[in-house]
């Protein structure tokens, strides 16, 4: 499979930054995939943040699961931390909800506008930098989507072949946090 490992970190950086011609990108799509893409990807991302914690997994362009001395937390590229990665990070974000005609009109106008009795537009911001991290268009009552809860230990141990130093139970802890709030 070594014939597939034809791209170096700089090639992937150019790909990520949209600097490659479309034909080259198409060729990369068609070719076999480089086996160590994840390492190249993390190398590129790690160089772009000012903090030192090791990136374990990128969640979004702005958010990463990183290794802290005692725990794995979600961290924004700006340095803002969102706590245990097994708790939906949205619980630690700022939220702005467009649930009125007036607020929705700042995004959708005229015949484009949804009905606020059917749907609210939730914008999740980073408290540190103000980046708009996710947007949800859901009816009232819908819990926020926990889009991605990775099984990090299985990933590193069984798929990458290099277990993380300390294992961590693969479990959704969001409701536990909510329970603490409700007390």
């Amino acid at each position: 499979m070594a014939e597939y490992d034809i791209y170096d970190v700089e090639d992937i950086r150019k790909l990520v930054d949209g600097e490659l011609p479309w034909r080259t990108v198409q060729q990369m799509m068609k070719n076999g995939k480089d086996r160590d893409r994840f390492d190249k990807w993390v190398t590129i991302l790690q160089e772009r943040v000012s903090w030192k914690e090791k990136i374990l997994l990128p969640l979004t362009p702005a958010l990463f699961i990183v290794q802290k001395p005692r725990e794995r937390v979600v961290k924004c590229r700006c340095g803002q931390e969102f706590g245990d990665y097994r708790v939906n990070w949205k619980l630690s974000a700022l939220i702005h909800v467009r649930d009125t005609d007036e607020k929705l009109s700042q995004v959708y106008r005229g015949y484009e506008k949804p009905d606020p009795a059917w749907m609210q537009l939730r914008e999740y911001y980073c408290p540190g930098c103000g980046s708009q991290l996710e947007v949800e268009a859901v009816p009232r009552g819908c819990p926020p989507d926990f889009e991605f809860l990775p099984d990090l230990d299985t990933f590193y141990r069984e798929w990458l072949g290099r277990p993380l130093p300390e294992s961590c139970e693969f479990a959704d802890r969001t409701l536990q946090r909510i329970g603490e709030w409700a007390e």
């Binding site: 959708y108 484009e112 949804p114 009905d115 059917w118 537009l121 980046s131 991290l133 859901v138």
Partner: peptide, 20 residues
């Protein structure tokens, strides 16, 4: 009456479909 729930990575979803 709604838009799709596709605000991936902070984007706004496409508007709903309305005929004229």
């Amino acid at each position: 009456k709604i838009t799709a729930n596709h605000g991936m990575f902070g984007a706004y979803p496409t508007p709903g479909d309305r005929l004229a």
